[in-house]
């Protein structure tokens, strides 16, 4: 007869990521960097927003572009002449603090004052993984359906800014943009909510102003 022993472990699997996220944030702050994390589904308009922010602000921007195959988005951003590092997640559905820690090694941090991280297109998994950013922006397009916000409460609860994008297509897809705004406010009364259409030039200025405001507050 062998001995049987009970061992208390109590190890929080999520803590390792949280610790690294805090370390990332400290690293950004030591370099005077404000970090914004863009979240949203595939095709919601995250990359387009990043491109337009690069073109329409005076920030010295650096980008970490995460995706299952990151070369496509990173390639788009590279054309705007800013330092960009693609983060390949392969089969994983989200970025984590560890990938970000490695990614920033290849960015000239002393030359950057706004770091933009583009997360993997997904409204579910990234919720569990803080990256160390100061501000979380969720982009949701009307083409995803106007019940998308209420169906994914946690990602909107954890965001600082919600952007309802592609509103020029709302009528074509029968989406009620006011409902999406109301759902976002209900889930997260503290978040700012902005309607946008990059194609029509709507909302970009407001999004940039919100980033400025958040940056000055922090």
């Amino acid at each position: 007869m062998h001995k049987v022993a009970d061992i208390v472990i109590g190890k929080n699997i999520m803590k390792a990521n949280k610790k690294l996220a805090d370390k990332n944030q400290k690293n950004f702050e030591n370099h005077g960097i404000f970090c914004v994390d863009f979240l949203g589904a595939i095709g919601s308009g995250k990359t387009a927003f990043i491109e337009d922010i690069i073109e329409n602000t005076d920030y010295n921007i650096g980008v970490l572009a995460g995706d299952v195959i990151s070369e496509f988005d990173a390639g788009r951003i590279e054309k705007h002449n800013v330092p960009v590092v693609g983060l390949n997640t392969g089969k994983e559905c989200h970025l984590d603090a560890h990938l970000v820690e490695h990614g920033v090694h290849d960015l000239p941090l002393d030359d950057i004052d706004l770091l933009i991280i583009e997360n993997v297109g997904n409204l579910i998994c990234p919720v569990d993984f803080e990256l160390g950013s100061h501000m979380r922006i969720v982009v949701v397009s009307v083409t995803e359906g106007d019940d998308t916000v209420e169906k994914h409460p946690l990602i909107f609860k954890g965001s600082d800014l919600v952007v309802i994008n592609k509103i020029d297509l709302a009528d074509a897809v029968g989406a009620d943009t006011d409902k999406m705004v109301a759902d976002a406010h209900k889930l997260n009364p503290n978040a700012k909510v902005i309607k946008s259409s990059l194609k029509e030039g709507i909302g970009l200025d407001e999004v940039i102003a919100a980033i400025d405001e958040f940056k000055n507050k922090s």
Binding site: A5, I9, G10, K11, N12, I13, L187
Partner: peptide, 20 residues
Amino acid sequence: NALRILNGQDIIVKSIEIEK
């Protein structure tokens, strides 16, 4: 719905029972 979540997002390996 204006809440701060204090607990309920973690995954914890609580304990194990082993034979030795």
